[in-house]
């Protein structure tokens, strides 16, 4: 991870989307993956918010990395994250008030997301600004992709619609819009991604274990 001279920007993006996908590979920030993914719109909004906060936090932490005393680095990272969360919170509240009602509570929770803090600690505080941008973009896009896939299946199966437009005539599988179905969807998709990794890329699969 911390090999500054060997980093390629494309490799960083790829690492975020596939190699260390926040949800499906390292299993961090599963709380929003279950909580806001019962509609495709909610899941995508959350993903975009995290993409924004992750990238901006990485940039800020990377710029400030020489000035941060290691003893107080965690509170500083949280403060930086909180700043950008407030920005995205106010932006969403202003431009998407309807969707904000649904995901607003969880947007504020981004401050405590494990993935943001872990990338600030593991990458941005040890690397230059440009690689940090790409790491943040990669992780954010991996998160956005994961939440989009999960919420796509949950809305399709649970409500029989996509982005609010009804598609299926029969009664949908209600459990998928409830929290229990969120766990089913995350678990099954994680297993599916592991299967692809093992079958086609010769990986070892991951069991994960975060929150």
């Amino acid at each position: 991870m911390a090999q500054p001279n060997k980093i390629s920007y494309f490799g960083l993006i790829k690492n975020g989307i596939f190699g260390e996908n926040p949800i499906f590979r390292v299993a961090l920030s599963l709380c929003p993956a279950v909580a806001v993914t019962n509609s495709l719109k909610g899941g995508m909004l959350m993903g975009v918010a995290v993409l924004f906060v992750q990238t901006m936090t990485n940039v800020t932490v990377s710029i400030l990395r020489k000035f941060i005393n290691p003893k107080v680095r965690i509170p500083i990272f949280i403060l930086v994250t909180a700043t950008w969360v407030t920005v995205s919170d106010l932006l969403l509240h202003a431009y998407e008030p309807a969707a904000y009602k649904q995901v607003g509570l969880y947007i504020k929770l981004i401050v405590a997301f494990a993935i943001i803090l872990s990338r600030a600690e593991l990458f941005a505080s040890k690397n230059k600004v440009i690689p940090s941008i790409f790491d943040g973009l990669g992780m954010g896009m991996g998160f956005l992709l994961a939440l989009t896939v999960i919420s796509f299946f949950r809305e399709l199966l649970g409500s029989g619609s996509l982005l609010g437009y009804p598609l299926v005539a029969t009664k949908p599988v209600l459990i998928f819009v409830l929290p229990a179905g969120g766990f089913f969807a995350v678990g099954l998709l994680m297993g599916f991604f592991n299967w692809i990794d093992i079958k086609f890329f010769g990986g070892a699969g991951s069991s994960g274990g975060g929150h």
Binding site: K171, L174, I175, L178, A180
Partner: peptide, 10 residues
Amino acid sequence: AFLLISWPRA
């Protein structure tokens, strides 16, 4: 349990 939660009416 899956069925009861998914199709509570039926």
